[in-house]
């Protein structure tokens, strides 16, 4: 054969062999001894690397899990996307019991839609909630409500939250939400909350975070909690889940029994639920309009109070 071809083949072959041997030796010499369980646990995890567990990615979490297993306690560890199924599998593999965690989901606690809280001005600037929030009050006048520029949408790795074009508010697709908490962290106004999904997916929450006085809030938003306290009164005694503080009602998800009694009671419709609430006894049919009438009257009286 032509030596012109032979020589390169020969020389390159030697180089390749040399390189292979060196690589092999180096790999041997610098091998990091790692707990094989880390990889095994990693395989059990969903591999989303969402960071919802509070560790840097699934690998970081699995290292932490193995570490904790050596100390004999897996309490407090939770993989939000995997849920308790994943965690119990991990527990089984590591031979330890895992807390049964309730499944959770993110909820948006602002009802200031385009219709209920009309835009009072036109914001012209970068479409980032963080910037808009840091620099001014927001286009609809509510200093605590949703800015609606979609930082939560950008940060969601699971495509589970979207801005509804009509209302201008973010909406969570519960089926996709893994409650990793990324949106909770990014929201500059702390509107999004991770709440338990509830039994049979029944859950109730106050869709407002505004702590201003009722009259002040109502000027900007027709869907805001005005802190009237009606819901607090109607809440069954044994539950006692609703508390009004700083003109804002909050439903404790741990105590709420999802009876839905408070929902028709709210004059502004600020309490939302994932199920059909029971109709109010007295004004069953025109319930909503009646509720709104009440709201209107209330606001008027509130206004008068302020004027005086």
């Amino acid at each position: 054969m032509n030596p012109l071809i032979l020589y390169p083949v020969f020389i390159l072959g030697i180089v390749a062999a040399g390189a292979a041997v060196t690589l092999f030796l180096v790999a041997k010499k610098f091998k990091v001894d790692e707990d094989p369980r880390i990889d095994e646990v990693l395989d059990l995890l969903p591999g989303a690397n969402c960071g919802g567990c509070g560790y840097p990615g699934c690998r970081g979490f699995s290292e932490a899990l193995v570490d904790a297993a050596d100390n004999g306690d897996l309490a407090g560890f939770m993989c939000p996307p995997g849920g308790s199924d994943t965690m119990s599998e991990v527990g089984r593999y590591l031979g330890l019991d895992v807390d049964e965690a309730e499944p959770t989901a993110a909820v948006v606690r602002c009802g200031g839609s385009r219709q209920k809280a009309p835009q009072q001005l036109h914001y012209d600037g970068p479409a980032k909630c963080a910037i808009s929030h840091a620099l001014f009050r927001g286009a609809n006048g509510c200093p605590l409500g949703c800015v609606g520029l979609g930082d939560c949408v950008d940060v969601c790795d699971f495509d589970a939250i979207h801005i509804n074009r009509e209302t201008g508010l973010p909406e969570v697709e519960t089926e996709k939400c893994v409650s990793c908490g990324a949106c909770v962290e990014v929201c500059p106004r702390e509107i999004i909350e991770i709440r338990p999904r509830g039994r049979k997916d029944r859950r109730v929450w106050v869709c407002c975070v505004n702590k201003e006085k009722g009259a002040v809030v109502r000027k900007n938003c027709k869907a805001a909690c005005i802190g009237c306290g009606k819901c607090e009164k109607v809440c069954p005694e044994k539950a006692g889940a609703i508390r009004v503080e700083n003109f804002l009602a909050y439903i404790d998800p741990e105590k709420c029994i999802a009876c839905g009694l408070c929902i028709p009671e709210c004059p502004t419709g600020a309490i939302l639920a994932t199920f059909q609430p029971p109709k109010k006894k007295s004004r069953a049919a025109p319930g909503k309009t009646a509720a709104e009438k009440v709201a209107g009257k209330k606001v008027e009286t509130a206004k008068e109070e302020v004027k005086q």
Partner: peptide
Amino acid sequence: RPLLDYIRYGKA
């Protein structure tokens, strides 16, 4: 580009 908007935010 909204240079100052981001810089102000970063500065804060």
